[in-house]
Structure formats: C-alpha cells, structure tokens
Design a protein around this nucleic acid. Structure first.
Length: 582
RNA sequence: CGGGGCGUAGCGCAGUUUGGUCAGCGCGCAUGUUUUGGGAACAUGAGGCCGCGAGUUCGAAUCUCGCCGCCCCGACCA
C-alpha cells in the first residue's frame, strides 16, 4: 500500500473530545472518527488492525473446534422476555418496534438467539457437544459511553457459545475456551491475566475475565493478584486467606456499653479522630434496601463493604438506602446507624443484620447509637445485638495473603478484554432448548458463553504500548508490518531504492506501507511514529551508497545497511514474531 | 438520571463579563517561489446560518427562554 493513496487523516493537535492516551492516539493517527456518542467509524488502518485481531481469534476458535456463524443484529423482544432479561437488562438494551409494532431489540449479546436456535435444531445428545461463534457488531446503549472504544455503545465482539449435555461437558468446553483464550492473547503479544470474576447479569456460577493490567487510569476493574502464583481475581469476588479463615471471638473481657456525644461526626475518619480510637476498633453500619426489606451491613471501620458479596449474602439485589429510609429505620440522620437496638427501634422495619466475618473477632468496639450526634463504645456482638448472617462481605485489601499460596496480594487496575462464563441452563430452560439423553430423558442443554472484545482489545493494546510519539503495535496485530519511508520524494535515487525495496518486500509477503507522499522528512517521521508501524525502513541520504536504515519502532537502535541486508533483517524480525508465541 | 463544563472555518482556540468598532488567531487546505533526515519559510488565496429555534433591542456570537449535541465526575456496566 502506498501512503499517498491511503486514507489516514493524522492530526497535529490533540482532539478535545479525548481524555485517554489510547483514545487520543486513535483519533490523532487517523484510525477512527466519531459519528455520535460512543459510535465510531473504523478507518483503513484501524480496520486492518481489527481484521488481524479477528483472524487470530478465528484461527484459535476453529482450532478449538468451534464453528463460525453470523447471527442477526435485530432480535425479537419475546426472546428476551422468555430469558427474563427483558426486565433485567435495563436501559442498556436498546428496544424499538418494527412497523407492525412488534417489540424488537438491537442485540447486545446473543445467548437468547443461540438458545432459540438450539431449541429448534438440537434434539439429541448425539448432536452434542457443539460450540458456535461469531464476530459481530453489538450495541449496548451505555449510560455513559467514554474512553473511545473501551466503552463505546457500538463495538465488535467475538462471542462463542458452548452447548453440552451435562456439567462435565461444560467443564471441558470451558477449559477448552480458557486454553484458546490464553493462546489468542499470547499470539497478539498482549499480556493478560485470567481473573476470577462475578457472573453478574449473565447468570451462571463460574466466570473468568481476561484482563490487561495497566498503570494508567483506563482500567475500570480492580484486580487483586498474587505476587507468586497465578491467583488473580476481580475485586468484586476476590478473597484472601484472612477472609477465608475468619478470626475467633476476641478474648478481651467485655466492657460496659456507653453512649458518647459525637456532634456532627459522621464518617469513620471523623469519629475515629474525635474519640481517639483506631479505625479498626470501629464498626460501620451501612443500610441497604433489598426489595422491600432493609439490610444492615456491618464491616470493620478500616474495611470497605463489597456490594457484590453483600448481594450474595443477602440473597438478592441490593441498593444503598436513601436518607429517608435511614432516618426511618434508625431514628437518626445518616452517619449514626449502629446494630444495637436496631431491632427495637421500629419493629415494622427490623432490618436483617449481615455482618462481615472480621467483626466476629472484635470486642468493645464503637458503633453509631441510632441517635443524632451519638455513638456507642464497648459494643460486643451477641451480648448487645444479634447477627442474622455472618459472611465475607468486605473488599480484599492489598497486602493480604493469597488464598492459594503464601504470596502477598497486589492490586492493579485492569481492562477486561475477554470473559468466559459457565451459564448452565438459564437460557436453555427459558427458551426450551432441550435434548433427549442416552436414557431417553429430556434435559435442558448446558450452556457456556465466551466473549472477546475485538475493538476493545485494539485500543487496550495502544493503552499498553505507546510512547510520547505515538503507538507501538505488537507485530502480530499491526496494520502494516513494515513502513518504508522515502525522505525526499523528489530524489530519483531515493525513489528507485525505495520502490525496489517495496516491491521485494511485497514479493516476500511482507505487509508493507510505502510512504511515497510529497511531504517533508519531519512530517513523515512524525506520522510514522504516530501510526506505530513496528518496523521502519528509512530511505534517505544513504541511498546513493545503496544503503538504508532499519529501526524498530520504540527502540533507539538504527541499523544502516544494504537493501539486501535490510530485507533479511526485516524478514527475520517478522519470523521471530511469528514463531515466538504462535 | 444527578452534578459540572462546552458548542465560533476541517482541527485547536480567542472574542460573550460591559450588545455596535467583530467574523478573529494558530494549525490544516489551495496556488507560487525557495527549501528538503524529526510536523520548513515567504507571498497570495479559499473557507463561517458564531449548534438550532423563539424572544428582547434601532442593533445579538454577546442578553432571555426553550431545544439539540458533545465532554468530564457519579450511580450502572463488559
């Protein structure tokens, strides 16, 4: 490809709409343009990258025995009513009516469609297992699109669905996909971690995310990972040895309970400082609504409540109680809630008390007094209040011990590039996807679902691999492998050497971009660095001596050598990348 | 949805407080000359319903009201 014919509108100035470095570079380097909020056009360079990523994913999915299909963008609403997600998915599910008034949706994912397909076509255990996948554009009407392609409304995703006869089959399919995912990211040279995660809206019970850990603020997930072994978990579900083996009751002799004035002291910090009591000797009481019930969640003062865990302990969705509810339940304004006497405060709203396991090992602690401007000291569980549910409901903290080995847990923020879910039978039951097993019994198909964000992966790679001058693509997913720069397009000798080099690289199957534009050298170098093609071959003042210069984008070394040697070097670099991890 | 901000040439912005002298700057674009290894210099030129709609006024980019779009923070989520 010749740069003179390639549409890649680079920008010298930073577009105002972008915050994240990867988003800015995508715009500046002419890879994408925004059409409307969260919706982008992929320009030629971007499309080449996306196709490379897609192809690697395709090859690994095929190798894992999955079959490629393509499913509709528009889905009938009744499919979603049957799975229950018509209600559960919320406003992210873009709904509309067709001309006849039938409710329809723009597909944000395809579990329903697969289950419906299976319901019609899979009838016997002899047809199982099966794994179907597609790479397609999805639409989720995000509350707040941001970070360019990292959280767009429209995006390209590979989604695969396994269909199995039983749980053991699902386990095998799941493992196959996990293995395939490791190969996919290794081939792309993107260092992801496989992270335990919550199943969220998808249903099911086991899920992992493939997450790229980043130093920038692009990460939307917090990941806790072991510094020694391969344990890694999303903060939502992470746990430590400290949490797994809760402390025994404190041996401390109980003090008398005492009410103390704490005027206007509402936060843990304020109360702790005011009473000169360390934070870990306080217990905070957070009130949540769970349907028409109220849940009081108790965690140690220096711990953070984990809503995902609370949801499980409380047996249903929870949301933070509003100020009125707090007032009604505790009889006090926000900031003074406590477990003591909560039951008696107002019998009709007696909350369920869910306490974190760590509270079990505490004695003589401080809590809110359920009265304005007052706290209690010398509070003890059992003697002063009853706990309905003991559970792990707090965030794991960095520095705690790995649950699998003796390592320490570290925290990092991460970008989720892929996920795998054991779905079970939620969708097959809802949509009637049943088969007859060897014994003649009718059973629901056991499903798994496996996604890789194609567009998201592309941007995440930039977030991970760039410098002040621009992108630095890993070779396997770069839009071009080599960029040949003609320093002075008016110079006959340079032209001849570069054209020759270009032709010979093309012959060898090297994906080459020739910058033959009538631009100044400086502008070409800037654009070259910006678009991030990983190997640069500069044809300039050494051309009369038959020499060119080979550089690796992002590395300072420059190899001045003959065109023949350059071609050898380039070929070797590309081979090395192919063989290294593929 | 709550909070904050923005909308003026393809891009980045000034001008709005105090209505008139206001259609401006830089980059980019076009043409010419000189240049040619890290976003060249000079000259000439094109390019605007100042987001849209009402209103106030002799007069609106500027004041008022409504609407639309976009960005940031939060709740939500992959």
């Amino acid at each position: 490809m010749r740069a003179s014919k390639l549409f890649f509108p680079t920008l010298r100035e930073i577009p105002g709409e972008a915050e994240l470095i990867s988003h800015r570079l995508l715009l500046r380097a002419g890879y994408i343009r925004r059409l409307t909020s969260g919706v982008y056009t992929y320009l030629p360079l971007m499309w080449r990258v996306l196709r490379k990523i897609e192809q690697i994913v395709r090859e690994e999915m095929d190798a894992a025995g999955a079959q490629e299909i393509l499913m509709p963008v528009v889905q009938p609403g009744d499919l979603w009513q049957k799975s229950g997600r018509w209600e559960d998915y919320g406003k992210e599910l873009l709904r509309f009516e067709d001309r006849r008034g039938f409710p329809s949706v723009l597909g944000p994912t395809h579990e329903e469609v697969i289950a419906a397909l299976a319901a019609g076509e899979i009838h016997s255990y002899r047809q199982l297992p099966m794994n179907l996948y597609q790479t397609a554009t999805k639409f989720r009407d995000e509350i707040r699109p941001r970070f360019g392609l990292l959280r767009g409304r429209e995006f390209i995703m590979k989604d695969a669905y396994s269909l199995d006869a039983d749980e053991a089959g699902l386990d095998a399919s799941y493992q196959q996909m996990a293995d395939a995912y490791h190969r996919v990211f290794a081939r792309m040279e993107i260092p992801v971690r496989m992270v335990e995660s919550d199943t969220g809206l998808m249903g099911g019970n086991v899920a992992h995310e493939f997450t790229l850990l980043v130093e920038t603020d692009a990460g939307e997930n917090t990941v806790l990972y072991c510094d020694r072994c391969d344990y890694a978990a999303n903060l939502e579900v992470a746990h430590s040895r400290e949490q797994d083996s809760p402390p025994p009751p404190s041996p401390e002799a109980p003090h008398a309970i005492k009410q103390v004035a704490t005027p206007d002291m509402r936060t843990i910090e304020e109360v702790s400082d005011f009473l000169a009591v360390p934070r870990e000797r306080l217990v905070k009481t957070l009130l949540y609504r769970a349907g028409d019930r109220v849940v009081a969640a108790l965690v140690r003062g220096d711990h953070e409540l984990n809503e995902t865990k609370l949801k499980k302990a409380a047996g249903g969705a929870v949301e933070m109680a509003d100020a009125e509810t707090v007032q009604r339940v505790t009889g006090a304004p926000v900031g003074f809630a406590g477990p003591v006497g909560l039951a008696g405060a107002n019998q009709d709203v007696r909350p369920t008390i869910v306490a974190d396991n760590a509270v079990r090992g505490m004695a003589n602690f401080v809590t809110g007094a359920n009265a304005a401007d007052a706290h209690l000291t010398g509070v003890n569980p059992h003697r002063d209040f009853q706990v309905d549910v003991w559970a792990d409901i707090r965030d794991t903290q960095p520095g705690e011990t790995c649950p699998q080995c003796d390592g320490k847990l570290l925290a990092a923020s991460g970008i989720e590039l892929g996920n795998i879910f054991k779905l079970g039978t939620k969708y097959s039951e809802g949509l009637g996807a049943r088969f007859t097993d060897a014994e003649g019994n009718e059973r629901p198909i056991v499903m798994g679902s496996y996604g890789i964000g194609i567009t998201r992966t592309a941007q995440a790679a930039i977030e991970k691999f760039h410098d002040d001058n621009g992108m630095i693509w890993p070779l396997p997913i770069a839009p071009f492998q080599v960029l040949v720069l003609i320093m002075n397009a008016a110079d006959e000798t340079q032209r001849r050497v570069a054209e020759d080099l270009y032709a010979r690289l093309q012959e060898r199957g090297v994906e080459t971009l020739l910058d033959d534009r009538d631009e100044r050298a400086g502008a070409k170098f800037k654009d070259a660095d910006l678009i991030g093609v990983p190997i640069q071959v500069v044809v300039g003042r050494l051309a009369p001596r038959g020499k060119v210069e080979v550089r690796r984008r992002g590395q300072p070394e420059r190899h001045e050598e003959s065109a023949d040697a350059a071609i050898e070097r380039v070929t070797a670099l590309i081979k090395g990348a192919d063989g290294g991890s593929g």
